[in-house]
Amino acid sequence: MAEPWQTAEIPGPKKALVITKPKIVSAMIRRAKRPILIVGHEAAEIDLDGESLIDYLIRLSNLAGMPIVATAHTVRYFIDRGFRPDAWMPILDIANRLRDPNWSGLDGNGQYDLAIFVGIQYYMEWVVLSGLKHFSPKLKTISLDRFYQPHASWSFPNLNMKDWIACLKVIEEDLKERGG
């Protein structure tokens, strides 16, 4: 049983399923018809054993053929690496579009069925995921952060840095081996 990272953030009856095996994430990405990756500014502040989380996410996006939406000022960290995200907009703007069944998506091909969130302040991501849980019934959400996000469909439990990095590596390796 996972606990919210911020102790008081108790969600209610419907809580995220815990990602006990990281291959759950890669399997969900593979199974999704229209996955999307949403990256907040904290991703640029996180160091994964000598590389930025941003670098990892670029690889993940390429492996899975998954568009990236950079929120806040995160776009600049992608551009600095020569990678242009598919879009950049405030976290609330992308969330507001994801709850609209008639949204045509970034590419005009329709709404997404899986949204992966990473790098947004815990408490802000918490309420955004709550909005999607309640008002976007067909969308599955995954939190890729290392703290349990109870309003997501799937989330890691609270992990230490070492275990989290190991999980991220498994996801990447699995996508490499079995395709995105």
Partner: peptide, 21 residues
């Protein structure tokens, strides 16, 4: 655009009521 803090309403003795989805 609503972002509930909690899935339930606990403002009267009917509740708590689960308002999820």
């Amino acid at each position: 655009f609503y972002m509930p803090f909690c899935d339930v309403c606990c403002l009267c003795t009917f509740g708590k009521c689960d308002l999820t989805g």
